[in-house]
Write a protein that binds this DNA or RNA. Structure first.
Length: 370
DNA sequence: AAGACGTGGGA
DNA sequence: TTCCCAAGTCT
């Protein structure tokens, strides 16, 4: 069965395949900011940002992040608040907390040098099998597989592999294939070329086979099944959660914000006080009760719901009822996870997009009133 | 193994 | 609207 899965490798001219693939990448690769040099730190940052995230989205974040934290030493020394702020809006925020944690370890345990062995680099927080292979091959020229979604899709087609790429167990099949195919002369370009091919030519839908530099090596194309591959089972739909949130302002024009717990969803990001509710019809009462029992705040929320915000995550959906309310200057948080800040100071804190939407609602509404 | 973990874009 | 993503990792 195992031999059968990769049977097409026997009929692949590996040297010619490498040459065609790397030759194409050399000519056609996109000009991307993390391709200016092979600084292991910058390669690392880019690979973490690119996890589950589009190139076009990453570019401005990468430029800003490297501007703010150009080296291992600067990121290791940075306040977490600033680091999270630089990641604000990118999503999967544990990536950047793990990155800074790992960078601190590199700074302290490896004298600031990103390790260059599979064993050492894989121990770093947030560095899984893909990222380890990407850094080792791109920054250090070490022939390790870097198997991401692109590579699994491309190889599924080229080698006509009918394994479900959604299953974690499938990854090792593709790693095995890459170990047989990878160029030892230029593992960096080989790995990047496979991903670039997946992004530009061998796309999820409507692959541009007529433009493909390795079409002659592609068993899926020759079998006419390139549109049937890869096999990928779909995931379950998301569940819905109802929330009520409050934008609370005092006589000084200062706002109450709350820092989320250090684990779980949107960890360590800031938000407007909110709670999960069972029933929209009594949302305001539930929120007032929550503010009293959790934060010791006696608040009269304005009567009407200001807006209803829908926010979709990968695995769940928030339906947020937004309320406005006044607090007194004498109301101080009874909780160290809360702060009272001016509108100007708000810009220093990292908020998830869902709560940026709440703030936008407040600004829009206030603009009408003023 | 399967679910948690974000977001914005395209069909 | 709904679904599927896009250079994955952690638990």
């Amino acid at each position: 069965m195992k031999e059968n899965t990769l049977k097409h490798i026997e009929h692949t001219d590996i040297t010619q395949f490498q040459s065609d693939l790397i030759g194409w990448f050399t000519e056609e690769q996109r000009d991307l900011p993390w391709r200016k040099d092979q600084d292991p730190y910058k390669v690392w940052v880019s690979e973490i940002m690119l996890q589950q995230t589009r190139v076009d989205t990453v570019i401005p974040y990468f430029l800003n992040f490297i501007d703010k934290f150009p080296t291992v030493a600067t990121l290791a020394a940075a306040p977490e608040e600033e680091v999270l702020k630089a990641w604000e809006g990118l999503g999967y925020y544990s990536r950047v907390r793990n990155l800074q944690s790992a960078v601190k370890e590199v700074h302290e345990q490896y004298n600031g040098q990103v390790p260059n062995t599979p064993n050492e680099i894989s121990k770093l927080k947030g560095v899984g099998p893909y990222t380890a292979g990407a850094i080792l091959s791109i920054a250090y020229g070490i022939p390790e597989p870097a198997v991401d979604g692109n590579v699994m899709r491309v190889l599924s087609r080229i080698l006509s592999i009918w394994k479900d790429i959604a299953k974690p167990s499938s990854r090792k099949v593709f790693e095995e294939a890459i170990r047989k195919l990878i160029s030892h002369e230029n593992p960096s370009f080989f790995n990047q070329a496979l991903m670039e091919l997946g992004a530009l030519i061998c796309t999820p839908t409507s692959p541009k086979c007529l433009l493909c530099p390795v079409r002659e090596h592609c068993h899926g194309f020759h079998e006419g099944v390139q549109n049937e591959l890869p096999i990928k089972t779909k995931k379950k739909s998301t569940r819905s959660v109802s929330l009520a949130a409050a934008v609370l302002v005092n006589e000084n024009g200062e706002f109450l914000i709350h820092k989320r717990p250090s684990t779980g969803l949107l960890a360590n990001l800031w938000e407007f006080p909110n709670c999960e509710i069972g029933d929209f019809s009594t949302a305001r009462k539930q929120l007032e009760q929550f503010l009293l029992t959790e934060y010791g705040l006696q608040v009269d929320l304005e009567n009407g719901v200001k807006t209803k915000i829908d926010h979709i995550f990968s695995h769940l959906k928030w339906n947020i009822n937004v309320y406005f309310g006044k607090i007194n200057q004498s109301d101080q948080p009874n909780d160290s996870s809360m702060e009272i800040v001016t509108e100007e100071e708000l810009a220093k804190y990292a908020f998830p997009v869902s709560h940026q939407k709440i703030w936008k609602c407040y600004v829009d509404e206030r603009g009408i009133l003023n």
